[in-house]
Simulated assay, not measured.
Amino acid sequence: MRAPRSRAFTIAIGLLVMAGIAVGLTALLRTPGDARDTAGRPSPKSAAQVDLARVVADYTSRFGPDHGYRRPGRADREDIAAAIGLLLDGRREQARQRLAERDFTVRTVIDTPTGRRYAEVADRTDTTVTPRGWGRVYLDLDHRPSWSVQVPHPVFDRGTEQLGVRVLRGSPGGVLVIAGAHRKAGIGNSADVAHRRDTVFHTICAELARRGLPGIQLHGFAAASAPGYDAVASTGAGTQGRPEGSTLATALRSHGFRVCPAWARSCPLEGRTNMQGRAADADDVPFLHIEFSPTVRSGGPPAERAVAAIDDITRGWVRTPAKS
């Protein structure tokens, strides 16, 4: 009678070992962002704890003129933008697969100063010797995506990338889109994403506009380009954003800034030829093109006051409270 009992015990132990191996292999095969909470969302325990401002500063610190940009093909642009759409729809795994086909990654990060979770969409070539410069996206995972803040000329328009992070933090439901290269990095003006349609940056912003998300785009001007002003506010090629533009101009003035409103008078740097503004206009979506002086973009209290004024607008664009 001992032999059968011993054989059954051995079989039971073998099954337990095999189950343990299977669980271990599953854990090894998962990427860091694959863990889920009971609602099916990425688990906070699996997310990287980061300071988003530092992450973006590190990312853009590698940007420079004359290198770091390769023009994307149409399929590249369309697939990456479609994957962003999947993320907006909450279809994370499908988005991950589609992004991987274009050598992009998606992971969950927690911005430690705010405690907010974001999906970070990044180009795998960012840290290589020859980056493609196709950009990066941060999408609020704790709230329904409702609006975007766009940074087309990071580093070239110094400080706009950090203003973008501040604006993203200011209101829930934001999507931050950052161009992936210096404005002068490509051949000709190929990396000047604000004035071209054949870029990943433009295709993503156009997808957001197609889905009805209003956008605010941040630029910077040299002091000599708009003397007497701290900011130039415009609605780009359209007029849908005029109510928000008027509110923003009033808010900026209340914070002590001198503002030129392009819808009311002739201003320099009006952004009429901005391609993302034209895409928003085609979809009847509000779009604001804001140029800031070097003083505002230098950080500190001026930047804080400017972002506080922008928050008055983005809060009005929030569609729903936090996700359940």
Score class of each variant (00 low, 15 high):
Arg7Phe: 14
Arg7Leu: 15
Ala8His: 09
Thr10Ser: 12
Leu16Gly: 14
Val23Lys: 03
Val23Ser: 07
Thr26Val: 14
Leu29Gln: 13
Arg30His: 05
Ala35Trp: 05
Gln49Gly: 08
Gln49Tyr: 04
Gln49Arg: 15
Gly64Arg: 15
Asp66Lys: 14
Glu78Met: 09
Ile80Leu: 12
Leu86Glu: 14
Asp89Ala: 13
Glu101Ile: 03
Val106Tyr: 06
Thr108Ser: 02
Ala122Gln: 04
Asp123Asn: 04
Asp126Met: 07
Thr130Glu: 12
Val137Cys: 02
Leu139Trp: 13
Asp142Trp: 07
His143Cys: 06
Arg144Val: 10
Val155Gly: 00
Phe156His: 13
Thr160Ser: 04
Pro172Asp: 08
Gly180Ile: 12
Gly180Glu: 14
Ser190Ala: 15
Ala191Asn: 04
Arg196Asn: 11
Ile204His: 08
Ile204Lys: 07
Ile204Ser: 08
Ala206Lys: 08
Arg210Cys: 00
Leu213Arg: 05
His219Leu: 05
Ala222Pro: 02
Thr235Cys: 12
Gly245Met: 15
Leu248Ser: 02
Thr250Val: 10
Leu252Cys: 03
Arg253His: 07
Ser254Glu: 15
His255Val: 00
Cys260His: 05
Pro261Glu: 15
Cys267His: 10
Glu270Val: 05
Glu270Tyr: 00
Thr273His: 06
Ala280Met: 10
Ala282His: 13
Asp284Thr: 11
Pro301Lys: 02
Arg305Tyr: 01
Arg305Cys: 02
Ile310Glu: 03
Ile310Arg: 01
Ile313Met: 06
Arg319Ile: 03
Ala322Phe: 07
